[in-house]
Amino acid sequence: MLRIRNLEAGYGKLKVLRKVTMHVSPGEIITIIGANGAGKTTLLKTISGLLRARDGEILFDKKEIKKHPPEKIVMLGCSLVPEGRQVFGPMTVRENLGLGAYVQYRRKRQEEVQQDLERVYGLFPILKERERQYAGTLSGGEQQMLAIARALMARPKLIMMDEPSMGLAPLIVKDIFAIIMKLRDEGNTILLVEQNAKAALGIADRGYVLETGRIIIEGPADDLLLNRDVQRAYLGRDLDGETKI
């Protein structure tokens, strides 16, 4: 579904990604883990077109998308749930979801929007309850759910999530991860970037460990949990102390 080869990207003179090679196959949950500054967010931004790749290949459904603008990449079916939710505070929940459906209107499939709305309300009943509330008044967990729901409104083939657990209480994190698993069970493909390595590897099929812009290890999630390099990437963190889900 997604195939990246020797991807390089950065900001100004700063090289953040150095020859990243990875792939995501349909139906998988793939997680990218790594310390702060390793390049995880940069990688997602580059895939979604928010940041221009300097070199390498990004093939989405066998099509090169490296030079596409973000809106075109979303049209092709690759959606990002950005770090820090980025919901539109002064707009209602319903309006936020409507914005997510933008590409469905562009695809002339507006008749499907109502159906999609029902579907995401099914996944997140709390959003239905708060349909007319301003997004800015929601709790952190609810905003995260809204951000995921908004991405789903575009009917993506690949959902990329940047730190969905960030700043959330452990119980809410558990809910969010349960939702990610549910999405996978429904046949979605997910690329998940997380600092909460243990939780992410707990639900992922495979994972990549990013360190200073390079992938230093990849493999089945179970193997990575045992791996010392994974623990080293989290120097100073007590893996056993993190939220269990």
Partner: peptide, 9 residues
């Protein structure tokens, strides 16, 4: 693809 990923890491 898998071989290249694994070779590089």
């Amino acid at each position: 693809q898998l071989q290249l990923e694994r070779l590089q890491s």
